[in-house]
């Protein structure tokens, strides 16, 4: 197997004396989408922030192409910031700027592109994400789903090699949620970026990723393909999927007598 693009080794992090990550070991491979699953509050977003260098580990290492993120100096971390894109869970859009200004910001501040070229790039990515005639709108004037897509546009506008998605579908309706995941899969096929995706959108997210990691009690207890995950018998993993499966088969709406309550969980060819 090829050398991992990003390696996380023995990562530990505590906040206020409470251990959040207790020695995470994870390999992320070039050109693949890796989904990080786990219960809420397990530290998935904290792990993602460590990968890009927003948080410094208490112990352990993060290697990007074999180089230690924190031992290789500030210039290397800047390089990582330039090569990575990050979609925040809460979008983190600049609410005092318009949609156009938000998406154009990394290009205006970092690239030497002229105004016309910046506008072309921004409009191209907005079109791709189905965002029409919203250039002049402020973030607060958009729906939650549109805000997510604008944040995605901002993360993608610089064509980063690695895209980190922190719950890209949270707060979206099921159709939009599926559309966003399909869009990520489609762009991954076209552009071939390396993706790390934290999500609760199980099982949908499993259709678009090539690898899955399962975070439980501050450690990665499973990493492998989605097919391997389906066969996994570890108690933490099975408990999580039993809950998902139960909710899917026994939804809170009541099925009419004689009707199935929900579709069976079958892997599809989607994505």
């Amino acid at each position: 197997m090829a050398e991992p693009f990003i390696q996380i080794q023995g990562l530990q992090k505590a906040f206020g004396g409470k251990n959040v990550l207790n020695g995470v070991d994870l390999d992320i491979y070039r050109g693949e989408i890796t989904a990080i699953l786990g219960k809420s509050g397990e530290g998935k977003s904290v792990l993602l922030k460590h990968i890009i260098g927003l948080l410094r580990p208490d112990a352990g290492r993060i290697l990007v192409e074999g180089r230690d993120l924190w031992a290789s100096g500030g210039a290397f971390r800047k390089e990582v910031f330039r090569r990575f894109g990050y979609l925040f869970q809460g979008t983190a859009l600049f609410d005092s700027m318009t949609v156009f200004e938000n998406v154009a910001l990394p290009l205006v501040e970092r690239s030497r592109l002229g105004r016309i070229q910046v506008a072309e790039r921004v409009h191209k990515v907005l079109e791709l994400l189905d965002l029409h005639e919203v250039d002049d709108k402020y973030v607060s004037q958009l729906s939650g789903g549109m805000q997510k897509r604008v944040a995605l546009a901002r993360a993608m506008v610089t064509d980063p090699q690695v895209l980190l998605f922190d719950e890209p579908t949270t707060g979206l309706d099921p159709m939009r949620s599926a559309a966003v995941l399909e869009m990520i899969a489609e762009h991954h096929r076209k552009l071939g970026f390396t993706g790390v995706l934290v999500s609760h959108a199980v099982p949908d997210v499993l259709y678009i990723c090539q690898r899955v990691a399962f975070l439980n009690e501050g450690r990665i207890i499973f990493q492998g393909s989605p097919q391997q995950l389906a066969q996994e018998t570890l108690p933490g993993v099975r408990q999580f999927f039993r809950t998902v499966e139960y909710q899917w088969k026994n939804p809170i709406w009541h099925a009419a007598p004689g009707q199935a309550a929900g579709p069976e969980l079958e892997p599809s060819t989607r994505g």
């Binding site: 922030k49 890009i52 927003l54 800047k78 910031f81 330039r82 990575f84 894109g85 990050y86 925040f88 809460g90 983190a92 859009l93 600049f94 609410d95 005092s96 910001l105 990394p106 501040e109 970092r110 610089t158």
Partner: peptide, 19 residues
């Protein structure tokens, strides 16, 4: 303004964009 940018992660977003 800066405080509300901080708590809504806008300042972190600038960092991730290498700004």
């Amino acid at each position: 303004e800066l405080a509300s940018m901080r708590i809504s992660e806008q300042i972190d977003a600038l960092t991730t964009m290498d700004i």
